[in-house]
């Protein structure tokens, strides 16, 4: 099937401009900046120190923040992309245009994804620049990796949100479903894994645990950031569970990309019918 990039760009452009104009991008970027600053300076407070500690500790703290915040923001951003148009009654007019449903869906996704990516990069980028004097090259590399994976994390949950917006019958249900997804992936999933591990006394499941973690983009994000940092790695003791074969960042990044593509593909399939 032929895709017309111009049509996708027209939809994406509108979505992106909408988020710029209603200051969504600015607000989210400021939230990221504020949280990141607070964490950078007080993140080591548990260790009894205040002030910028080390890049490892800073990133580890930021990861725990981002893992809650970004999925939530992404889900809220995307849950009404399609169902909102349908409920307001503007979807018919859009679809009467010379545009395919797939182009509309991709346009929506790309526009929202650009807005989220811009907020993320701007918000954390600003903090990165403030910390520039504290960073060596290695730290900068890790921080850039953190920002990039944060963007990927946002994209994957946005992709799920778009799927929700296609399948939900109305906006209320869509928002409920989005929150349920957040609950499951961010709060419940790890508990279940941990519970399973404890219940079996850690004897069984030890080998499949890392694979199960791939089933959650939030966990993939955590592993990606934690494993790139030797200090944190031993801190978490994760190296014992995670096989070397899976730990390569590019493989994990590939899994993240899969988590972006798969929900979108499901959404596209559902929207065509």
């Amino acid at each position: 099937m032929m895709l017309e990039p111009g049509q996708i760009a027209a939809i994406a452009g509108k979505e992106f401009r909408d988020r710029i104009r209603n200051r969504w991008v600015l607000a989210v970027a400021l939230v990221f900046t504020a949280f990141a600053l607070v964490i950078a300076y007080f993140g080591a407070a548990q260790q009894g120190a205040v002030g910028f500690a080390s890049i490892e500790v800073t990133i580890a703290s930021l990861v725990s923040l981002v893992i809650y915040l970004i999925p939530l923001i992404a889900l809220i951003l995307g849950f009404d992309a399609i169902v909102g148009e349908r409920e307001r009654g503007s979807l018919d007019l859009l679809l009467s245009m010379p545009i395919t449903r797939l182009e509309l869906l991709l346009g929506k996704y790309l526009g929202l994804a650009t807005a989220l990516a811009l907020s993320t990069v701007a918000g954390f980028g600003l903090v990165g620049m403030m910390l520039l004097t504290e960073f060596d090259f290695n730290a900068l590399f890790h921080y850039a990796g953190f920002v990039l994976t944060s963007v990927l994390l946002g994209m994957s949950f946005l992709s799920m949100a778009i799927a929700v917006s296609v399948f939900a019958a109305d906006r209320t249900r869509a928002s409920g479903l989005a929150i349920a997804l957040w609950f499951f992936f961010v709060l419940v999933f790890d508990l279940l894994l941990l519970g399973a591990l404890v219940a079996t006394g850690g004897r069984t499941g030890g080998e499949i645990l890392p694979w199960l973690m791939l089933a959650n983009p939030a966990d993939v994000f955590r592993v990606l950031n934690v494993f790139s940092l030797d200090e944190v790695r031993s801190l978490y003791g994760l190296s014992t569970v995670f096989p070397e074969g899976l730990a390569a960042p590019w493989k994990l990044a590939l899994v993240m990309v899969l988590w972006i593509v798969a929900p979108l593909a499901v959404a596209a399939h559902g929207f065509e019918r």
Binding site: G6, S90, D92
Partner: peptide
């Protein structure tokens, strides 16, 4: 569809756009 114009019943447009921007958005799609 490029040769079809459609006015839905109780047309819903985008509140945050101006009249001209609304037309420009649909013009681009068409």
């Amino acid at each position: 569809r490029r040769r079809i114009g459609f006015l839905p019943e109780n047309v819903v447009l985008y509140d945050n756009l101006s009249a001209l921007e609304t037309l420009q958005f649909f013009a681009r799609l068409k």
